[in-house]
């Protein structure tokens, strides 16, 4: 994780688990003693965004930024806080950018293009083979292309986060790994992480492309 570039852009389709990955990643950075900042740039979805966990994340030492109105609330307005530029400029910070949904949501990134110099950022694309739009190699590549074309940035790593929420099995992850491998070969982008629930991560084979990244479900209430 610490070998990743200081600025990590997290993209992925709705339901890919991008927000869970981004939140878990930001928390882990804080736990490693880094100055961790997460910017919720999702202007597409009205619910289940990282800003909802503002208080919990702040307590864990993560600086949470989102909209410019009141930070935590549930507004689907394209109003991003000016403070997002601060950790992008301040090199003491490790930044995670949690970007909303599809190419429409990713357009926000173009605003910060000046900070995304080649070699100074990582852009991770979260793949979930159980989602209709990214269940095939062609679908996944189309998704990556459409996002790259509006943001002007390049995906530098894939994250296999194939899941079925609490019903996720090892088979789900392995099927997603196959898909990710083929996308990786096709585009020449490495698989950086295999992200899955802690109880599934324990059962995965030891040797896999990409680092196994066990996650907790921060975004999903216990009754969901």
């Amino acid at each position: 994780m610490l070998k990743d570039k200081r600025i990590r852009i997290i993209i992925g389709h709705y339901g890919s688990g991008k927000t869970e990955f981004a939140v878990n990643y930001a928390v882990k950075l804080a736990e490693m003693g880094k100055k961790s900042a997460i910017a919720d740039l999702d202007i597409v979805n009205p619910y289940f965004r990282s800003r909802e966990k503002h208080d919990e994340l702040t307590e864990k030492g993560v600086w949470v930024m989102s909209n410019s109105l009141d930070g935590k609330s549930a507004l689907d307005l394209p109003a991003i806080s000016a403070s997002v530029a601060a950790p992008l400029q301040n090199k003491e910070y490790d930044v995670v950018l949690d970007v909303g949904g599809d190419a429409v949501g990713a357009r926000v990134l173009a605003r910060y293009k000046e900070y995304f110099k080649e070699g100074e950022y990582d852009m991770f694309c979260i793949l979930n083979a159980n989602r209709e739009q990214t269940s095939t190699v062609e679908g996944a590549i189309r998704h990556i292309d459409s996002i790259e074309s509006v943001t002007g940035t390049k995906v530098t790593g894939l994250v296999n986060n194939t899941h079925m929420l609490r019903e996720t099995t090892v088979e789900d992850v392995l099927r997603g790994q196959e898909l990710s491998k083929r996308v990786s070969e096709e585009l020449g982008i490495p698989i950086k992480y295999v992200s899955t629930l802690e109880n599934v991560a324990r059962l995965l084979p030891e040797k896999m492309d990409g680092e196994i990244f066990p996650i907790k479900l921060y975004m999903r209430e216990i009754w969901m």
Binding site: G15, Y47, F48, M164, L165
Partner: peptide, 10 residues
């Protein structure tokens, strides 16, 4: 309700 509309489930 909004939650069920926005919620992701198998």
């Amino acid at each position: 309700d909004g939650m069920i509309g926005q919620m992701m489930e198998p």
